[in-house]
Amino acid sequence: MTLPAYNFAYLDEQTKRMIRRAILKAIAIPGYQVPFASREMPMPYGWGTGGVQVTASILGPDDVLKVIDQGADDTTNAVSIRAFFAKTAGVATTTRTAGATVIQTRHRIPETPLKAGQILVYQVPIPEPLRFLEPRETETRVMHGLEEYGLIQVKLYEDIARHGHIATTYAYPVKIEGRYVMDPSPIPKFDNPKMRNSPALQLFGAGREKRIYALPPFTEVVSLDFEDHPFSVQRFSQPCALCNATGVYLDEVVTDDRGGRMFVCSDTDHCETRQADGHRGPGLPQTQQEDAA
């Protein structure tokens, strides 16, 4: 008899227990960063070692896993992590948002609204929203303890003083249930409103920084702003060039060296689903029928 070279979903059971305890405390204190004994994973820091450890600790044999990187299912990071769990846990994988039970994400929230029972696992590079304002961990910890968040409002104010508007466009700080200020990971601020009162459980894992935090479903998430400069999200002047979607987050794609460019959905699953449903954007060759219409 040959024994498997590693445990189900790669991590050993003691590590999973430690991470599971951290997840439960993170759920009990939404937005608070729970320290955990992050392990070395078979991938470099910055490739989602935190998210992978969270996913490995919650994943069961019946789960269906989706992994996205900047909204796309087909980029290196997403493909690698999906293959990692297909191999180490033997779980089913999918690219369909609606069909997944666990979605690990790097820097986007899917356009398709999440449902109750789904779990969104974020890969987080720098979990501390105050880090660039105060480099000392001992100090930021006291600041969270005392709810001393003036500095981050000053940072947003400096944006206004310099640019006339809040120029922070990603990793836009949010306040959870009126208590902890949290870094939503580098998602575009476009996605911030989707975090609020989501029916899905949201877990955040930072491997290098050794922190786990969480948002239970139906949790109050407020993007920081000012009365005279309210929070607002990016707007795009044109629809997706491939699927004609509006109200979604678009990526700019350079198409030639003469200034040609097109804007397409960042969420590849959303875009492909719409195209399969017959939606065609202005970037695609138009059919006779649509020309006539």
């Binding site: 997840i23 759920i27 994943l59």
Partner: peptide
């Protein structure tokens, strides 16, 4: 794993 997921869902 199954017990943890049940407890996690109950906590969430």
């Amino acid at each position: 794993q199954a017990v943890f997921r049940a407890v996690m869902d109950a906590s969430a």
